[in-house]
Design a protein around this nucleic acid. Sequence first.
DNA 1: TCTATAGTTCGATATATGTCGAACTATAGA
DNA 2: TCTATAGTTCGACATATATCGAACTATAGA
Lengths: 107, 107
Amino acid sequence: MSNYRTDTARLAAAFKALSNPNRLNIFSRLLLCCASGSACQVDQCMKIVVGELGKDMDIAASTLSHHLKALHQAGLISMQRRGQHVDCWVNAEMVEQLSFFLNISKN
Amino acid sequence: MSNYRTDTARLAAAFKALSNPNRLNIFSRLLLCCASGSACQVDQCMKIVVGELGKDMDIAASTLSHHLKALHQAGLISMQRRGQHVDCWVNAEMVEQLSFFLNISKN
DNA sequence: TCTATAGTTCGATATATGTCGAACTATAGA
DNA sequence: TCTATAGTTCGACATATATCGAACTATAGA
């Protein structure tokens, strides 16, 4: 499987999602969430609520929402409503695919 | 060291360089060049001439040049004139930095 | 049922990007 | 010195993107 054109397009779309500094910043926070030593609570481990992600970032709520949608559509994050809030977390498989691509010459 | 803002901007710029399908395709060819089993000659190992990179891609020479410039400015590739030709090769350190970022939670 | 909180969608707008062809520069070789 | 080949730069243009504020939807709690 893995049509070359489609594959390239999919990867390019994912890289595009990481190409905006604000969006990359948001994604970083998710990547770092609950990395060894961070302070997340157990039941929220790996997840952050949308509002948290935008903290100290000086962008409008609508812009934050827009960026999260872009990350989601690129397959980089997942989102799920939990009451009033929406949880976000990294989609590890997609990150793995990007990493694999970058290290293709080593494999 | 490694100012956070600057770092984010640098990484975002690199991801942006990979965000266009044609550009990603060009970069793929460089990544795969001389990966185990490929057919490059020894003295050209890891390098491809600009013209080669655009083969079968159906884009204008000027567009190819534009894309290579973008990859170069993002620190992803290096270029050097050799007579009539210009050699291109991947900048492994930059690729390593992107990979490191993606795997940050594992480190 | 009313209100507050958390997010999203919409429309507008300024800016950036990808692409082309034409004109240019640099090198090799006759 | 002339010509062919390899790339680059320039200017134009259509399309995509980032951002905002306003209006909207969804949920929780009084």
